[in-house]
Design a binder for these strands. Structure first.
Lengths: 151, 151
DNA sequence: CCAATATAGGACTGAAACGGTCCTGTATCT
DNA sequence: AGATACAGGACCGTTTCAGTCCTATATTGG
């Protein structure tokens, strides 16, 4: 479902003007009901804008350079569920300090992946073969900064 | 659910010997039924080994250095769903070449994230604060290799 | 050896999520 | 104004999921 959303959003990024859900489904070979559902979700999340009526359809809400694919993912899947630590001021929490560090690592990874995906825009996705490389080199730069901060 | 699995698996990595699901749930503050379910899945996937009986419990199936967290993730969520392109030999496919490139980008990103997560082991996760940095610098090295391959 | 106990394995069930269908509301065009 | 094409949203059957509970297995002590 999420990959459908990315495909549809990228198609909108690569083409001009509003497109009806039916046309988008045809072009992306996604079943029409599914495409419609996905587009509705994207519209509710503000990733795309919708226009009702005879010449209606969907278009990107902003320019493709300003929409990260993580936004597309969240529109479909909702926010990443972060498992909450117990209140840090609670006495019982002190027993589980190792546990909390485990959670912290996991959350760091989640955030890093989320950030990397946020840095890939729909414009990147519309250009064959570049999306992945762009994101990973940016994240490496950030890793170097964080490593410096640790030392 | 997946984060619970990672937390549990990491706890097993950080501690010795088999632990009953109840104890693991207590230590990780995960609801006991949920912890039990998750551990059963991990056992079926071969990430952890289980021992029935009075002194039974769960332990890692291999050393923590040899279990990537992507394996943990797949045990819970199953394989990443890859949207299939149409048969490349089909005539109708040629109309949608742009569409196929979009899918290829998305698949590349999926694979890159999967690879990065595979390179983080449970041993990494058990050490506070290191997991993320390790993964990102390795992926950057791979990006450089792929870029060289493109040129 | 056997009963008691503690554990994992697995089945069952109701609730929630999901995907498809279809009706309603809105906007455009003639 | 009426016809048409579209998105928005409700409905419904199916699937998935989380919790509960029963069954099977292994250990221990009498």
């Amino acid at each position: 479902m999420t990959d459908y959303a990315v495909v549809l959003a990228t198609h909108l990024a690569a083409t001009d003007g509003p497109h009806a859900a039916r046309d988008l489904a045809l072009h992306t070979q996604i079943p029409e009901p599914t495409a419609s559902k996905v587009l509705k979700k994207l519209a509710r999340a503000g990733v795309v804008s919708s226009q009702r009526g005879a010449k209606g359809g969907y278009a990107l809400a902003r320019s493709a350079e300003r929409i990260g694919i993580h936004e597309v993912i969240e529109a479909i899947e909702g926010p990443i569920a972060v498992t909450e630590c117990s209140d840090e001021t609670s006495d019982s929490f002190c027993e589980y300090e190792t546990n909390c560090e485990v959670r912290a690592n996991w959350q760091r990874i989640n955030l890093a992946v989320q950030r990397a995906l946020s840095e890939i825009t729909l414009a990147d996705m519309a250009v064959p073969g570049t999306a992945e490389l762009v994101s990973l080199s940016r994240s490496a730069a950030e890793a170097a900064r964080m490593r410096a901060g640790l030392e």
